[in-house]
Amino acid sequence: MSSFDNSDAEFQKHSQFISTSVQKIYQNVSSMNRMVSQVGTAQETPEIRQQLHQIRTYTQQLIKDTDSSFKDIVNCKDRHLKIQRDRLVDEFTAALTAFQAVQKRTVDLEKNAIRQAKANVTLPKPPSSNKSTSNSFSESQFENNFVDNRGPTQAQLQQEEIDLQALEEQERTIRELEENIVGVNEIYKKLGALVYEQGQTVDSIEASVENASVFVQDGTEQLRRASHYSNQARKKKLILALILGGILAVIILLFIIRN
Score class of each variant (00 low, 15 high):
227 S>V: 04
220 T>K: 11
152 P>E: 05
143 E>T: 09
110 E>M: 10
253 L>A: 15
147 V>S: 09
208 S>L: 10
119 A>P: 01
65 D>W: 04
61 Q>G: 14
136 S>L: 08
17 F>S: 09
207 A>P: 03
143 E>S: 12
44 E>H: 11
123 L>R: 09
224 R>T: 12
159 Q>C: 05
35 M>K: 12
89 V>W: 05
151 G>K: 03
218 D>Q: 15
81 L>D: 00
65 D>C: 00
134 S>H: 06
166 A>E: 06
193 A>H: 07
240 L>Y: 11
148 D>P: 00
220 T>H: 09
180 N>Q: 12
89 V>H: 10
3 S>W: 07
231 N>K: 15
177 L>I: 11
14 H>T: 04
230 S>L: 14
244 L>K: 11
20 T>L: 07
92 F>V: 05
178 E>F: 03
223 L>T: 10
196 Y>H: 04
52 L>W: 02
191 L>W: 05
140 S>G: 09
104 K>Q: 15
188 Y>C: 03
176 E>Q: 14
32 M>H: 05
69 S>E: 14
245 G>R: 08
7 S>A: 10
222 Q>S: 13
152 P>G: 02
40 G>R: 13
216 V>E: 15
252 I>H: 07
60 Q>R: 10
83 I>S: 14
91 E>G: 05
131 K>T: 02
44 E>K: 07
41 T>Y: 06
89 V>R: 11
213 S>T: 15
90 D>E: 12
48 I>C: 02
142 F>P: 00
205 I>A: 06
133 T>G: 11
92 F>C: 03
142 F>V: 12
163 D>P: 02
218 D>V: 08
208 S>M: 10
151 G>N: 01
175 R>K: 15
83 I>Q: 15
199 G>W: 03
5 D>Q: 08
58 Y>D: 15
34 R>K: 13
182 V>Y: 14
172 R>G: 02
196 Y>D: 06
58 Y>A: 15
132 S>A: 04
150 R>Y: 08
231 N>Q: 13
7 S>I: 08
100 Q>S: 04
74 V>D: 03
172 R>I: 03
70 F>A: 09
94 A>W: 03
202 V>F: 11
15 S>F: 05
156 Q>F: 00
170 Q>G: 05
195 V>Q: 06
60 Q>P: 00
120 N>L: 02
257 I>W: 14
200 Q>E: 06
203 D>L: 07
187 I>W: 04
43 Q>C: 04
146 F>V: 06
233 A>P: 00
68 S>F: 06
97 T>V: 04
149 N>S: 13
231 N>H: 12
148 D>C: 04
92 F>Q: 05
159 Q>P: 03
129 S>H: 09
123 L>S: 09
181 I>Q: 05
86 D>N: 15
